[in-house]
Computed example of a mutant assay.
Amino acid sequence: MVGGRLAPPVDLIRNASLFLDFDGTLVEIAARPDAVIVTDRLRAILGALEAALPGRVAIVTGRPLAQVAALLDVSALALSGSHGAEMLWPDGRRIDIPPPLWLAPTISRIAGFSEGRAGVLVEEKPFGVAIHYREAPDEERACLRFAESLAHSSDIELLHGKMVVELRMPGADKGAAVSAFMKQAPMMGTVPLVFGDDVTDEAAFAMARTLGGSGVLIGDERPSAARYRLPAVSDALDWLEAAAMVPA
């Protein structure tokens, strides 16, 4: 028992397809996205898991697909980036969704808005754009009102975070990515097992339940659709390392 929620038994790996978040699950969260440390141990664990579950291991992350591919050798793994908007199978099949038509002009408008607002950071993404105001807390109200005005004028989803607001393409999430992978061989007919740490992983946890599988929350206890929990990234790596040795 881990703080009221069970730790997952390692034999859950049998007949499972494994879906792994990246930041906060496989690597410690860093101050900057490019500052994460991918260890040789993590690379070895992913290799062992792929050998144990050939074609049934996926990285499902909010990072852009190309960014994760640069950090990891994903040639033998399935991969979903940008919260389900990008999909890549180990055999090279992929789903490439064109950027929404509103993205370029919206980025331009936000750049104009942020000009002269010290501390407001604009982060461009493949399918959205984020406005960070962590270093300009007095600009919070202005940032939120401006983002809301843009979201109401187009087919844009508005996501609120800690000192950030993001405008993104609606319809894609990590749950949809899990569902899409599970409809394809060799994952079809197995049970999804999802590891994640953030609220953005909740859609994947819920989809795992719908498909007869389970979610594993990494980190502190909180309300979640995950059935199981492990306290930290180090515990997740220990579990994955042990699970890779479980006989099929």
Rank of each mutant, 00 (worst) to 15 (best):
F19M: 07
F146V: 02
D21N: 06
L71Q: 08
K162M: 10
E28T: 13
S108L: 14
G215R: 07
V10D: 07
L237Y: 14
G84D: 12
R141S: 15
D138E: 15
D96T: 15
W102C: 09
A31Y: 04
A30K: 08
A85F: 13
D138F: 11
V122M: 05
N15V: 00
R222T: 08
E115P: 00
M188P: 00
L240G: 00
I29M: 12
G3L: 11
A111H: 10
P64Y: 07
R63I: 04
D238V: 15
F146I: 04
G81K: 01
L18A: 05
P231D: 15
L42G: 01
A151K: 10
E241G: 06
A142T: 04
A206R: 15
E50T: 14
D235K: 10
G212S: 12
G92W: 02
V122T: 12
A236C: 15
G161Y: 13
D11I: 06
D21M: 03
V216K: 00
V38F: 08
I29Y: 03
R63V: 03
A58G: 01
P223M: 04
D91T: 05
A70F: 03
T25L: 01
K183W: 00
M182Q: 14
L79Q: 06
D201A: 07
G119E: 12
A31L: 11
F181G: 04
A226Q: 05
I156N: 12
G116H: 07
V216W: 00
S234K: 11
P54L: 03
G215T: 09
R145L: 13
L217N: 09
G55T: 00
G3F: 08
K125Q: 07
A7S: 15
V178T: 08
A243C: 10
A76G: 13
D73R: 05
I218T: 12
P90A: 08
I13D: 00
P99I: 08
L20V: 03
A185C: 05
S154D: 15
H160K: 13
V27D: 04
C143L: 09
A76K: 08
P170E: 09
L144P: 07
M207P: 05
A44N: 10
S179E: 15
A204Q: 03
A225K: 07
A51I: 01
V74I: 14
L18C: 09
V191I: 15
P98S: 14
P8T: 11
M163N: 12
R134G: 12
A185F: 06
L103K: 09
D91W: 04
G212H: 10
T39F: 06
V191T: 15
V199R: 13
M1L: 14
P9R: 15
L46C: 06
R229Q: 11
G213D: 08
R93D: 09
D138Y: 11
L79I: 10
L20C: 06
A130K: 06
M163T: 06
C143N: 10
G175H: 10
L49G: 00
P223H: 04
W239A: 07
V164M: 13
H132Q: 10
N15C: 00
R63G: 02
A208V: 07
E123V: 02
T200K: 13
I110W: 01
W89D: 04
K125D: 02
E50S: 15
L77Y: 02
A7N: 10
L49N: 00
G161T: 13
D91P: 04
D220K: 12
E148K: 14
V57F: 01
G81C: 02
G62W: 05
A70Y: 00
L53S: 02
Y228A: 05
P223C: 01
A206T: 10
